[in-house]
């Protein structure tokens, strides 16, 4: 539980950070809240020779509204998300989910940027980003680019981030007023990653599902957008058959690992149940 030796850097600007990362190469890692990276370092599963702490960079924090989009600085903590009335009104699913992440101590340090850049299939925020079709702002030695969250995740701990790039902000289109949402997470205890979880964002019209996106956490080596499952409920009243069809379609794309949370078969089964429950709860909230 003792990390190996490393050097600590605290740049004051994004460009300094990018330069440091470029100069130091593979041996350097950005440090955000540290609540995924430091545990890995303590187990010596990660042994970066340099940590580039992003806390000294003004402007990486904050939540602002930009037209019909919400832009969240990468270094905004989960606690800050929870404290934001803007998020509560525009993107309430972020509140619901942040409250299911770890415990208050972790949420005071852990950042949204770290959570989505980490690439751990157990992280909860990436599924939301898929469901909400968020865009990530990446800045690196070759400039700035935007990558859709739906294009970002490539494998466990593999993302579209290029060497030397950092995630600086996340931009999300505000879902229509009256949308329904739910994040259903099955976990063994407070502080545990999901055994299975599902995010649903939908709108209803005339008692029927008008639009719907569904995304899944910890049921594959990356977060999953469950498009077929969502399509299975659009146009329905979310009757039993539709719910079951969604669960079946979602299960078809799940490939969870067997671990201490349960065998893959169990995790797939409850993954489908999370989808059904999230759909029902989201619909009950929609107007």
């Amino acid at each position: 539980m003792i990390p190996g030796p490393f050097d600590y850097h605290r740049p004051a600007s994004v460009s300094d950070a990018i330069k440091l990362l470029a100069d130091l190469g593979d041996e350097a890692r950005p440090l955000a809240g540290g609540h995924s990276l430091l545990p890995m370092m303590k187990l010596r599963l990660a042994t970066p020779a340099h940590l580039v702490d992003l806390h000294g960079i003004a402007g990486l924090k904050g939540i602002c509204r930009d037209g019909d989009r919400i832009v969240i600085g990468a270094m905004t903590t989960q606690a800050e998300l929870l404290a934001s009335a803007e998020i509560g009104t525009s993107l309430p699913i972020l509140h619901e989910t942040a409250l299911l992440i770890a415990d208050p101590q972790v949420r005071y340090r852990g950042t949204l940027g770290g959570n989505v850049a980490n690439g751990d299939p157990g992280n909860d925020m990436p599924a939301l980003m898929l469901a909400l079709d968020a865009a990530y702002r990446l800045e690196g030695p070759n400039g700035v680019r935007e990558v859709a969250a739906r294009e970002f995740y490539q494998g466990a701990y593999f993302t579209a981030l290029e060497p030397g790039e950092i995630l600086t902000g996340i931009s999300i289109a505000v879902p229509p007023a009256g949308h329904g949402y739910a994040y259903e997470k099955l976990k063994r205890k407070v502080g545990d990653y999901a055994t299975a979880a599902a995010a649903v964002v939908l709108t209803m019209a005339g008692g029927k599902v008008a639009s719907c996106t569904i995304a899944l956490t910890n049921l594959h080596e990356t977060p999953l957008l469950a498009t077929d499952a969502a399509n299975a409920v659009i146009g329905t009243t979310l009757d039993d058959a539709a719910l079951k069809a969604a669960a079946t379609a979602a299960r078809a794309i799940m490939q969870p690992a067997s671990d201490a949370r349960g065998p893959a078969e169990y995790r797939t089964h409850v993954g489908g149940i999370m989808v059904m429950r999230a759909l029902q709860r989201a619909a009950s909230r929609a107007s």
């Binding site: 063994r188 949370r261 349960g262 065998p263």
Partner: peptide, 8 residues
């Protein structure tokens, strides 16, 4: 009797 074993 954890969750998955109950389910099993």
């Amino acid at each position: 009797h954890d969750f998955w074993r109950n389910w099993q």
